[in-house]
Design a protein around this nucleic acid. Sequence first.
DNA 1: TCCGATTGGTTTCAAATTGCAACCGATCGG
DNA 2: CCGATCGGTTGCAATTTGAAACCAATCGGA
Lengths: 152, 152
Amino acid sequence: MARDDTDGQGPAWTDPNCPVARTVDLVGDRWSLLIIRDAMDGARSFTDFQQRTGIARNILTDRLRKLTAHGLLAQVDAPSGRRRLYALTEAGKDLFPVIVTLRQWGERHAFEAGETHSVLVDGDGARVPDLLPAAANGSPLTSDTTSVRRHP
Amino acid sequence: MARDDTDGQGPAWTDPNCPVARTVDLVGDRWSLLIIRDAMDGARSFTDFQQRTGIARNILTDRLRKLTAHGLLAQVDAPSGRRRLYALTEAGKDLFPVIVTLRQWGERHAFEAGETHSVLVDGDGARVPDLLPAAANGSPLTSDTTSVRRHP
DNA sequence: TCCGATTGGTTTCAAATTGCAACCGATCGG
DNA sequence: CCGATCGGTTGCAATTTGAAACCAATCGGA
């Protein structure tokens, strides 16, 4: 989670010019990514999130607020009724590739051979293929064949 | 971080059959993914990691141990000399797509228009293209066009 | 070979974060 | 109108994190 913006000077990022670090500052705690995962799977209400994740209620309040403050979730009025619901913003939905790669790594490395786990499927019920970095010409890329460059 | 395996019965996962949750249990804390990022960028020694991340030394000790215990890092003997170094295992290297998607989300959503940040480039210095989920036939997929299915 | 610097930690203690459980006012449903 | 549910809040205990001091084992140069 980003350090709190108590002085109004902005969040004091862990590593201000690394995009990985900024993202981790925003969603890299035990619960935020699971909240996003559940939102992508249809969770909308406070109790939805609480029951699916098992998170403590006060912490859930805090996370929903922070994710909302950071523009990943938005509160919307329920179509019928008065209660407020949470929905992913465009930025929140754009975390989909992150959730997918986390899922796929977990499927490959966090289960024993025989263990069952959920899988992500497309509209036709076909498994979503592994997401792998590739150059513009399609050749696969790894951490050994890429590097981080200071920009500009 | 996974709950500790104090009873020898295995880590009590947050959500045992969700691969996303298992991955978050293993690397979803403030520092582990930054340690992996730095390992991918060439960090090998304790002080390498400490200086690049700025993490407290006792916490770094703990994280290096846990990542090693979980098979993401391995300790190897330095080619010349006696000190031990850390290197990514195959499972650790396989987190590359996760780091890439975190980075790309950060580049898109965690920087103001004018702010500078590092970029990931391939061997030719060309920017690594955005990683986007797609079906086997190449059509783009989003959280709205996919779903999680219980498997078997 | 001696000496000081560096490395890779460990220890101690304080501060921050998390979780549990009880409580609460505003709905909702009948 | 009544009881259940929703979306929290509050207080407190347990856990995790961080800063700083300390330390033994190298390492590197004079």
